[in-house]
Design a protein around this nucleic acid. Structure first.
Lengths: 249, 249
DNA sequence: GCAAAAGTGTTGTCAGTACACCCATGT
DNA sequence: ACATGGGTGTACTGACAACACTTTTGC
């Protein structure tokens, strides 16, 4: 990308009249996006952290994030960050959480950042993590290291947002591969909410909702009765949503 | 406020190395806050709108909002907007909702805005509205006029956030005066969720939660049996919150 | 007395919980 | 055979919805 694509288009057409201050003075903010990427590895909810390759905070652990280009949409920027990191083209879930703008949060100047959370499934993150293996780590949400900027706070808020959303929308499925067992699903929810759930009751609720398509396949090579595999029934979800059905957990 | 308080402090210490673009280029964003102020008038949930006094969109209906000063916190800016408008010093509820940043959302340049919602009660908004009477209106949420910028969308999202929060936190009380009847409270919730609720069941739930202090006072000069007045028991709420009690409606 | 809204009580249903039990597979 | 997790059934309970009823005021 060339410098020409970054014109400095300071506006001058209007003035903020009430204080007699030229409006250019208000156009000196920097602006970034940060992504809290959740994944489920080893039956635990983890967050993707990177080692920063640029100043400030070079070498420290941080969330994947970047400055936004002057002509780039917020959501596009967040998707770009995640795509550059993992190669994912279509991110199933990417939600804005909150915006952080403390005057002194960035040593370079006044930089606001828009927090996001994303959910990725094992089909995706396994192959691609290796290309950046040195500086991408999946970290248990209970064991976060010291982080650059206010990224600790951003993660905490993202986790809260994830928990709220997970009660109302079937986003747990986005953390699973295409085919999964009911136990896989239960583990996801136990991990998100840090609780234990009753097996029988969990199964009944999930199956009664009509969002699962039972496949003919079962697990293989397990030292116990093999579990049936299911997949998320997107079509059924869309029809149910239309009739003011609501996912509740 | 003088111009001196608005220095142009373009940073130059660091460079974004991966594209060889000087970091100054990324510091050309404008940044504002917008407030969706909810109040309950005539037993209906309303939103405060203002007639814009400056360009762009001068003369059109819009949300109260303003550009943020380079050394001002986001929350401070939102409180300032509301204080300038209503004289309120301590806003009981002011929550960030979402950030809007479409490239073309502002005709002057790239301006991001952080949406907020605020709840105000009749004790406050009645006296102060008159000082700006010409250009402040309370509008029924079902009957919004055409609005400047993307303010329609900001209101819709704020209403959704209000509804979500109102189910989990006792914020309905912030829309009421100090002393209120159970029916007043019921009307608030009916208005927020646009539904009808059963009187008996609503009373039972509210009283059982232990968040209401029954006063010795009753209504006066009503053409029916006068209702008992209640106030919100802040102290009880704090103790209950500590024991992982959760408000649910 | 009557209208109007405050305030109380009763009943049935349904969803969630706890928990016990059987089933199929690898070693 | 037995360990392991998959999968099913039952009984209890407590919250909530529906609705009928009594009470207190002004006119």
């Amino acid at each position: 990308m060339s410098e020409k694509e970054f014109p400095l288009h300071i506006p001058s057409k209007y003035h903020v009249s009430y204080y007699q201050i030229p409006i250019e003075r208000f156009f000196q903010f920097g602006f970034s996006v940060d992504c809290v990427v959740f994944g489920c590895l080893e039956n635990t909810l983890k967050v993707m952290l990177v080692e920063r390759g640029v100043q400030p905070f070079k070498g420290q652990w941080a969330l994947p994030g970047d400055l936004v280009y002057p002509n780039e949409e917020i959501s596009t920027a967040a998707e770009r960050v995640l795509r550059d990191l993992t190669g994912i083209q279509d991110i199933p879930t990417m939600e804005q959480t909150k915006t952080y703008g403390k005057v002194d949060r960035h040593p370079v100047g006044r930089v606001l950042t828009v927090g996001h959370y994303a959910l990725v499934n094992p089909d995706i993150y396994n192959p691609h993590a290796s290309s950046w293996a040195d500086n991408i780590h999946w970290v248990d949400i209970e064991e976060l290291p010291g982080l650059a900027f206010d990224h600790q706070e951003i993660i905490e808020d993202a986790l809260e947002a994830l928990r709220t959303d997970a009660r109302k929308k079937p986003i747990g499925f986005d953390l699973l591969p295409e085919k999964f067992t009911l136990n896989d699903l239960q583990i996801i929810y136990e991990s998100i909410f840090s609780t234990k759930l009753d097996k029988g009751n969990f199964r009944k609720r999930m199956l009664n909702m009509g969002l699962l398509k039972a496949l003919e396949e079962t697990q293989e090579n397990v030292a116990h009765r093999p579990a049936r595999l299911y997949s998320f029934d997107t079509q059924s979800y869309e029809t149910l949503k239309a009739k003011d059905f609501s996912f509740e957990i």
